[in-house]
């Protein structure tokens, strides 16, 4: 609080400089602390370069297009997961909410069912997804239960609701209302095919990157995840923020359901089995801290891309997909270890 005298300040600088010289590792720690997406970005670049080298057909525009399409579903889902993990929560039910919502959208729009217009079915899906997220949030804030337990429970509930509602039946391509297939539409950009689903995903990333960085709600999300007690004492209504986060995430899961229908050209109760954990994988590899309050949504996009790149690269190189599990598993552990290390950084 007091300006240092020249003597002590100079001494301080000298010490600081000495420490700085002593360890370049510390400097790296500080940089990664400020830019948490830097390490996943380097992993993405390195992985892409390696596969481009070992698998000649990997680095083609066509394949890059395929990789983005393969990222769309998990990439979208993981935006909601990022919001939740930023509050130091977790959602094990997001994939189940997505699949349930996709069944609601597809079935209610079927001629033999409610025969809703496609747009209305999508709107209904948004409401269902939002309500599902709201229910998670309500259980977490009102009953004061850990998110892990609540969403483990709702994972079971939404999974069984899906099976009961779908009666084991897939809604096939020709039964789908045309609006529901919009997000599967490809746009050819000179060999690089992007789908509208990918564009929707990228749009959502842009929106939430903005919201988290430039709005009060964004600051509150970080504050609540960082130190809920401090946030409360600073005048933030922690439970309100949490409830809004789980609800918004539910809406995002519903949009992911629409992307999913477009991607697989069907709505199946058995799709997206791995989506729950895959979304967490993308967030964690993307450098967002499981302890909350730290991370960027762009990191999650990079994390989701890494998974797709590894998947595609291994298959083009003719290697067993078992290696994908191995590689991603190792990346998760490295990412969490790195997060622990980076969190100890002090500038």
């Amino acid at each position: 609080m007091v300006s240092e005298t020249t003597a002590t300040s100079a001494g301080y600088d000298a010490a600081e400089e000495f420490l700085g010289r002593q360890s370049g590792l510390q400097r790296l720690q500080t940089i990664l602390h400020g830019y948490p997406w830097l390490s996943p970005a380097s992993v993405l670049v390195v992985a892409t370069l390696i596969f481009a080298f070992v698998a000649p057909n990997f680095a083609t525009l066509g394949n890059f297009g395929t990789i983005t399409q393969q990222t769309a579903v998990i990439g979208t889902l993981a935006i909601g997961q990022t919001l939740i993990i930023l509050t130091a929560g977790i959602d094990l039910s997001c994939g189940a909410i997505m699949v349930f919502t996709s069944m609601v959208i597809a079935k209610t729009a079927m001629e033999s069912d409610l025969n809703l217009p496609g747009g209305l079915a999508l709107l209904l899906g948004l409401v269902v997804g939002g309500l599902a997220g709201f229910a998670n949030g309500l259980l977490i804030t009102r009953l004061n239960l850990p998110p892990f337990i609540v969403t483990l429970g709702t994972l079971g509930i939404f999974t069984s609701l899906t099976l009961l509602y779908a009666t084991g039946r897939t809604v096939r391509n020709r039964e789908l209302a045309p609006e529901l297939k919009w997000l599967g539409k490809g746009l050819d950009l000179g060999g690089f095919t992007i789908t509208t689903g990918v564009l929707v995903m990228l749009g959502l990333y842009a929106v939430f990157a903005y919201v988290l960085r430039y709005t009060a709600w964004g600051s509150h999300v970080y504050a609540v995840g960082d130190d809920p007690d401090a946030a409360r004492l600073a005048g933030i209504q922690v439970n309100k923020v949490l409830l809004s986060v789980y609800t918004v995430a539910g809406f995002i899961f519903a949009i992911a359901a629409w992307v999913l229908i477009g991607r697989v050209n069907a709505a199946s109760p058995n799709s997206g089995i791995d989506a729950n954990l895959d979304s967490i994988t993308a967030v964690v590899i993307g450098g967002t801290s499981l302890f909350g309050g730290r991370g960027r949504v762009v990191g999650t996009l990079i994390g989701a891309l890494i998974v797709s790149v590894v998947e595609s690269g291994l298959s083009i190189a003719g290697l067993d997909q078992a290696y994908k599990r191995l590689a991603i598993g190792m990346l998760i552990i490295i990412a969490v270890a790195a997060d622990q290390w980076i969190r100890r950084a002090r500038a």
Partner: peptide
């Protein structure tokens, strides 16, 4: 407060204006 009630990951200005941005 004795515990200071500041959010470590947020910057100084964000902390000062937290809840009344």
């Amino acid at each position: 407060y004795q515990t200071l009630a500041v959010s470590p990951a947020l910057d100084i200005a964000t902390n000062m204006f937290l809840g009344r941005e």
